[in-house]
C-alpha cells in the first residue's frame, strides 16, 4: 500500500510542476534550464523505478484490456480519473492495485460506488464476469499488482482443520468466529463472509480492501489461503448447525435475548395459566 502512495504522489508532483516550471522559465531562462535539467533527472529516475507510470503515456493494451478500458471510461472514470490515476476527493488511483482488487470490488458489486459513505457495501454486481475480467485486465496492464489464480474452486485441496486455526488467528477478530462480521470503529465494519465466493475471498486476502490488512503470499502462502477458504466455505457456510437453530451466530447477546423472549415469556404465560386454574 505504501509503495502505491509514493508512486501516486510522484506522478501528481510531476504533472503539477511541469507547467509551473515553464512559466517561470520565460522570466528567468537560467533558472529554467537548471530546473528542467533537475526535473528531467527526477522524471527519468521516476520512469526507471516506476514502469507502471509509463503505461499511461503510451498504453499498449491487449484486446481484453482495451475492452476493459472502454468500460472503465464509461463507468469508473468520473471517480478514478483518466487512466485510473485517481481524482482528489472522489476515488483513489488504481495504478498497481492489481486485477485481484478490481475483481473483488466489481464482482461483489462494491464498484461502481453508488454513493460516498464510510464504506462501500456489497450489491448485486453491475458487470458480467466477462466484463469484470476485462476491467481487471485493463488495470493489471496499467500498473501490475496481485492476481487471483485461475479456476472457480480455489479450495479443492484445502485442509479444513488448518484453515480453521488460521481463520481464528487472522480473520476472526474482525469477521467473528462464525464469519458473520463485526463492527469496526467509526461506522466501518467487517462484512459477513457468507455471500463471498472462493475467488472473492482469495481476492480480498490479496488486496486488503478498506480496513482489512493485505494477506500477501508472504503472510499466508497460497496453500494456507486454500485452507482458509476451505474452512469458510465448508465449515462456516455449508456445515449443518449442530444443536439446532444458531440464532444468527451472534454469540451470547442473542442467547440472552432468546432466554427472555422465548423462555421467560413462555413461562410467564404458563404461570398465568396455572394461577388462573382455580
Amino acid at each position: 500500500m505504501t509503495s502505491d502512495n509514493d508512486r501516486r504522489r510522484g506522478l501528481l508532483a510531476r504533472l503539477r510542476e511541469r507547467p509551473a516550471a515553464r512559466s517561470r522559465g520565460r522570466r528567468r531562462l537560467g533558472a529554467a534550464v537548471r530546473l528542467i535539467a533537475a526535473l528531467m533527472l527526477a522524471g527519468g529516475a521516476y520512469t526507471v523505478f516506476a514502469p507502471g507510470a509509463q503505461a499511461q503515456d503510451n498504453p499498449q493494451l491487449t484486446g481484453a484490456a482495451a475492452e476493459g478500458k472502454a468500460l472503465f471510461d464509461v463507468s469508473c472514470v468520473t471517480c478514478h480519473g483518466r487512466n485510473a490515476q485517481g481524482v482528489e476527493g472522489r476515488g483513489p488511483s488504481l495504478i498497481g492495485v492489481g486485477a485481484a482488487s478490481v475483481e473483488f470490488q466489481v464482482s461483489s458489486g462494491r464498484m461502481p460506488l453508488a454513493r460516498q459513505e464510510a464504506q462501500a457495501h456489497r450489491k448485486p454486481p453491475v458487470f458480467t464476469d466477462e466484463q469484470t475480467r476485462q476491467l481487471a485486465q485493463y488495470i493489471q496492464e496499467l500498473g501490475g499488482g496481485p492476481v487471483v489464480p485461475g479456476g472457480d474452486d480455489l479450495h479443492e485441496d484445502g485442509n479444513v482443520a488448518a484453515g480453521g486455526e488460521l481463520f481464528r488467528i487472522n480473520c476472526s477478530q474482525c469477521h467473528a468466529f462464525g464469519g458473520g462480521g463485526g463492527a469496526l470503529s467509526s461506522g466501518k465494519f467487517a462484512p459477513s463472509l457468507h455471500p463471498a465466493t472462493d475467488r472473492q475471498i482469495y481476492a480480498a486476502m490479496l488486496s486488503g480492501p478498506q480496513n482489512m490488512p493485505v494477506f500477501g503470499d508472504n503472510q499466508l502462502r497460497p496453500e494456507q489461503k486454500a485452507d482458509i477458504i476451505a474452512y469458510i466455505q465448508e465449515t462456516l457456510k455449508h456445515n449443518q448447525d449442530q444443536g439446532g437453530f444458531n440464532l444468527g451466530r451472534y454469540g451470547p447477546s442473542t442467547e440472552g435475548l432468546a432466554i427472555f423472549l422465548i423462555g421467560i415469556v413462555a413461562l410467564v404465560f404458563a404461570s398465568l395459566w396455572i394461577a388462573g386454574k382455580s
Binding site: R168, Q173, F177, G251, P252, G256, L257, I259
Partner: peptide
Amino acid sequence: WVVSAASQPDWYVM
C-alpha cells in the same frame, strides 16, 4: 492471541 469479534459474556455478566 485469538480474540473473535462479538466476544461477549452471558447476559447476566454483560
